[in-house]
């Protein structure tokens, strides 16, 4: 209880301080990187409901940055779920393009663009960088007749559409599975399962045969599941026996990075300050520990590189989207 009171008191005094200082001028105590930015709390919009990975990572990093005063103002997380991110982008547009309103997303953003869901594209954003990410895998039930991915592919080639894949159409599992099916030349039947929880439920209950999970989701569950193929660049140390699609000769990888985005017109000064703080956070041992424990890779990709990578991927996704629509 004491701890809580202290924390509440801390939060209150911080907020009071923030408003006081905000009205007087730049924060004198912050050994900030640039003068003038940030002059008010930075709103980080997460286009999902609270509780998911993107949300939790954003909150962790924001907390770390606040703790170490890497930015003179706190980062606050705002959840804006809905409309495949359209809601979040609208929120971003409501704020000024001065770096005080940014988005923390992942490559589902590219899928929304490829599916032409919202009225936004890459031109609307300035990339701040990737703060780590993780890759997914394909799993079957542990009592399944398929021990390896080759057996599964052979079976599907012999009897097309004989197995059911749980996925949300137009979501990451659909695109990753679609790329893999294209590369290996097979076809599955689909059943709608729009969340990881739904996919797990379907697979374990015998209502689907194949489902895609983040490696961390698999490692937390393990029981009842058998991973067949991993869509990362290299095998994971936690599952040394699971091959990557790449080493089997299929050019299919998916690294779902945590992507920080600002409005396109954000000034350089703000972008630099934010990127610097994010980069420092990614080097922090506690953050690295959380990432490793959740089989996420903790890395930092600067904004321009992240944007170039994403542009390339979007082209690929556009091709797949054309076959769906």
């Amino acid at each position: 209880m004491m701890r809580r009171i202290k924390m509440l008191a801390g939060g209150v005094s911080l907020a009071v301080a923030a408003t006081l200082i905000g009205s007087v001028g730049p924060n004198p105590t912050g050994h900030a990187q640039a003068e003038g930015f940030p002059s008010e709390p930075i709103r980080v919009i997460v286009p999902f409901k609270p509780g998911g990975r993107t949300d939790v990572v954003a909150r962790l990093i924001a907390e770390k940055i606040k703790e170490n005063d890497w930015l003179s103002q706190p980062m606050v997380i705002v959840n804006a779920d809905g409309g495949a991110g359209a809601n979040a982008v609208q929120q971003m547009r409501r704020g000024k393009a001065d770096g005080h309103t940014i988005i923390h997303w992942h490559h589902q953003a590219l899928i929304a663009m490829a599916m032409k869901l919202g009225d936004f594209g890459l031109d609307d954003f300035r990339s701040l960088g990737f703060t780590g990410g993780g890759s997914p895998l394909w799993a079957v039930r542990s009592d399944s007749e398929f021990e390896t991915i080759e057996q599964l592919i052979d079976h599907l080639k012999a009897e097309p559409r004989s197995l059911i894949e749980a996925l949300g159409i137009g979501s990451i599992p659909h695109f990753v599975g679609g790329m893999f099916a294209d590369a290996a030349g097979f076809e599955t039947r689909y059943v709608t399962a729009n969340s990881a929880a739904d996919r797990l439920r379907m697979l374990l209950g015998g209502n689907a045969d194949i489902a895609l999970f983040a490696a961390s989701e698999y490692l937390a569950q393990k029981e009842g599941l058998r991973p067949l193929v991993y869509f990362g660049l290299n095998r994971l140390p936690e599952m040394p026996d699971v091959p990557t699609a790449l080493e089997l000769g299929y050019d299919v990888t998916w690294a779902n990075p945590n992507w920080w985005l600002a409005p396109a017109d954000t000034p350089d000064e703000a972008v630099e300050a934010l990127s610097a703080a994010l980069e420092k956070a990614m080097a922090d041992p506690e953050i690295v520990e959380y990432f490793t424990n959740n089989t996420l890779e903790a890395y930092w990709t600067p904004g321009d590189e992240a944007m170039a990578e994403s542009e390339k991927l979007l082209e690929k996704l556009n091709k797949i989207a054309a076959t769906i629509q």
Binding site: G11, V12, A15, P41, R43, V76, V78
Partner: peptide, 8 residues
């Protein structure tokens, strides 16, 4: 809202 939810 502003202290706990950080909502403006």
């Amino acid at each position: 809202l502003s202290t706990f939810l950080f909502i403006r």
